[in-house]
Amino acid sequence: MAATEVFSLDVRGQTVGVATGGVVPDAAAAADQPVVLLVHGAGMNRTVWQLQTRWLVHHGYTPLAVDLPGHGNSKGEPLGSIAEMAAWLADAIAAVCGLLGCDEVCLVGHSMGSLVCIEAAAADPDRIARLVLLGTAAGMPVHPALMGAAEQNELLAPELMTAWGHGSRAHVAANPTPGLWMLGGSVALLERADDGVIHADLSACAAYEAGRAAVRVRCPVTVIVGSEDKMTPPQAVVSLIADFADCDVVHLADTGHMMMSEDPAAVRGALAKALARARNC
């Protein structure tokens, strides 16, 4: 494709915001470079993957970090449940496969996005080559103070999500990218969400029950766990891991829930190992 072209994705007749790591994907590239869809968490958007998509596109993959409906640059209203988001993701996968001529994709999901990816992989296992879950759990209860602030569209909601979502290093101004303020950037990102979006997402997380979805996932799974994750603590993922037939677990030391920005190098390393298995299948 010419450099002036832009990758465009429509799902259900609406435009979807997509980040591709700075390289416009096409069918010729996707034939040799596995397609990786990355799904963000509550109140966030595709930009949370910016330290991973550029690496992926230059290391043999075709990354597409998508905005869920009502988030980032995606049109439409936010969806009200994990099941609805998973059904939308299934349509997005079909659209991507049609555009790029691929039969299957790898799914990478963070937090709420991990639940969406689990459900999508369970519903259509033939389409999913590999599943990578970050900051995940069998269930995601939400603190009443956070839910109340989100319902009122108060700044307190982004502030609480940021404070609880980062490990100790982020709270003492450590940042792998010098000159940037990790906590301030997180609050600013969440503040950009339209009114009602954070509350809708948190409500969907709070209502979700994994049930037997993980048992129906047939592809290999990698779960990446932050040792200081307060939002989905390491112990909260144990029962979920037990239900997967083929699961590797990666533990990241001194890292919280927002591991993609807290320790991007470790996350990229874990992604490289996980996705390499998909390339070699």
Rank of each mutant, 00 (worst) to 15 (best):
A2T: 14
A3I: 10
F7M: 14
L9I: 07
D10M: 14
V11S: 01
R12Y: 09
V16K: 01
V18N: 03
G22M: 00
P25C: 04
P25S: 00
D26C: 07
P34S: 08
A42I: 06
G43S: 03
R46I: 05
T47Q: 07
T53D: 02
V57R: 13
H58N: 15
H59C: 11
T62G: 06
P63W: 03
D67L: 11
L68W: 02
L68D: 07
P69G: 06
P69M: 07
G70S: 11
H71L: 13
N73E: 15
G76V: 05
S81V: 14
I82N: 00
E84C: 08
A90N: 10
D91R: 08
V96M: 04
G98F: 08
L99T: 14
L100W: 00
E104L: 09
L107T: 03
V108F: 01
G109F: 08
L115Q: 07
V132I: 13
G135D: 00
T136S: 08
P144I: 00
M147A: 15
G148K: 14
G148R: 09
A150K: 00
M161T: 02
T162C: 05
R169I: 07
H171M: 10
H171R: 15
A174E: 14
N175P: 01
T177M: 14
M182V: 13
S186F: 03
A193L: 10
A193M: 00
A193G: 04
D201R: 01
C205D: 08
C205G: 09
A206L: 04
R212A: 15
A213L: 13
V215I: 15
V217N: 01
P220S: 13
V223L: 09
D229I: 04
A236C: 09
A236R: 09
D243G: 10
F244M: 04
F244A: 00
L252P: 03
A253S: 13
A253L: 12
D254M: 07
G256F: 06
M259G: 03
M259C: 12
M259S: 12
D263A: 15
R268I: 06
A270G: 02
R277M: 03
